[in-house]
Design a protein around this nucleic acid. Structure first.
Length: 410
DNA sequence: TCTGGGGTCCTAGGACCC
DNA sequence: TCTGGGGTCCTAGGACCC
């Protein structure tokens, strides 16, 4: 038995925690660079705004309807998320943090699951002021269905049980809302006359597999109540990507270099947090115009002799790689780095003849992490990541940082 | 003028090997 | 005159998720 705990309009609700005056007021939260809407409250939805809408297109509506706008404030959202996960951990040790605003709970062997879910929901609301919905079912896919139903219930909780009730729900559930089925697949299934979750659950495994792939077959089995997707306690990342649009177009190699150095810092911090090292790095820059197979994207890939988690080493490599792909006549919109071939630091094989890592550098990185943990991200970093940071993204509606705010719960 | 960022899984197709 | 077949590994691209 699985339960999925999902925060309602998470980013918008986070902003509301510190602004009780915004209860029942429509709120939208914008993507990095204030580009488009990534989260919105039900009140904002009523004005016809959709997730993904371009901000410049709804600006007038926002003004007319008095909708409150926030730039996304990830430091705040991560901090709230950690508090919620800590509350969940008080109820069960078997918890899989699935995303910043969602977690799976293992409910096997628990008797009154519905009452427990109501209790969890109340704790999170009382202590963090975050509204959540909880779905309970024998498979992850069904739990997601239940969660969606729970969002429209006053209790916020839905358990798919008994079978007649599940059948009733699935008969009225649009396939486009099923976890794992996106726009393309639902269109494809509609052509074959499949519109509801119930119809999809009755399709034959072989037919479904032939129509698309094993992933869809798993979804179908899960809809029938057969668990195919396991509980994963601490998934380790396989790739780490850091990429951002710039606040304005850049044509200067040194500014792009600064941005890349900063992204290397973020990526390396994430490596160290997960006790990983990377053996491979790709950097990419996106120009405003271009041609060829990859259009306006230019990238460069490099394999290290030894896995690394050093900000210094990664930044130096990124700098050299940028020299190879940078074209001076172009203007650039975005840059990014990707790390892959990640392995655990204590299991990695080093090249005997080229030991790049030194204990000294490890110590330095540990100190940097400690300082940034205590005083907030980016308090200390490499000079190569720049000080003025004119390329920094636009965030005109940012709420104050989380450090120094009132404690939310004891 | 202006449309995010970070991930996973699966498949097809090419290169290469014997 | 006739020119195989099976396997692996890698990469790119498509679909999905939050």
């Amino acid at each position: 038995m699985f339960a999925i705990v999902d925060c309602n309009s998470f980013y918008a609700s986070c902003e509301r925690i510190f602004r009780p005056d915004l209860i029942n007021v429509p709120i939208v939260v914008l993507s990095n660079n204030d580009g488009c809407v990534i989260a919105l409250t039900s009140e904002a939805k009523k004005h016809g705004i959709k997730r993904g809408a371009a901000y410049f297109e709804i600006k007038e509506l926002v003004r007319l309807k008095n909708i409150t706008v926030f730039s996304s404030n990830y430091a705040l959202y991560h901090s709230i998320s950690e508090r919620i996960m800590a509350i969940l951990a008080e109820y069960t040790t078997n918890i899989e943090v699935y995303s910043i605003d969602e977690a799976w709970l293992d409910m096997n062997g628990l008797s009154d699951r519905y009452a427990l879910a109501c209790q969890i929901r109340k704790s999170i609301l009382d202590w963090v002021k975050m509204p959540v919905s909880i779905g309970i079912a024998p498979t992850k896919t069904l739990a997601k269905v239940a969660n969606k139903i729970g969002k429209n219930k006053p209790s916020g909780v839905c358990e798919l049980c008994p079978k007649e009730y599940t059948d009733y729900i699935l008969s009225n559930f649009d396939i486009a809302d099923i976890w794992g089925i996106g726009r393309q697949l639902s269109k494809k299934l509609n052509i074959h006359g499949i519109y509801t979750a119930k119809q999809l659950s009755e399709a034959s495994d072989r037919w479904v597999r032939k129509l698309y792939n094993v992933g869809l077959e798993r979804t179908v089995r899960e809809l029938r109540g057969e668990p195919c997707i396991d509980f994963e306690t601490a998934p380790t990342p396989k790739t780490i990507i850091v990429s951002r649009m710039f606040g304005k177009k850049l044509y200067n190699q040194s500014e792009i270099g600064e941005a890349l150095a900063k992204y290397c810092g973020h990526a390396a911090t994430k490596l160290r947090k997960n006790h990983l090292v990377a053996k491979n790095m790709t950097i990419f820059i996106q120009a405003t115009e271009g041609y060829g197979k990859n259009g306006n994207n230019y990238s460069c890939r490099y394999n290290f002799d030894n896995g690394t988690d050093s900000t210094i080493f990664l930044s130096q490599m990124a700098h050299r790689m940028l020299e190879q792909i940078f074209r001076p006549t172009k203007k650039y919109l975005r840059a990014g780095i990707m790390l892959d071939q990640l392995t655990f630091k204590d299991q990695t094989q080093y090249n005997l003849f080229n030991i790049a890592e030194t204990p000294k550098q490890d110590k330095l990185m540990a100190v940097i992490d400690k300082i940034n943990n205590k005083f907030g991200n980016d308090k200390i970093g490499l000079l190569s990541a720049g000080i003025n940071r004119e390329w920094k993204m636009k965030q005109e509606h940012l709420s104050p940082g989380v450090k120094g705010r009132v404690k939310l719960y004891h």
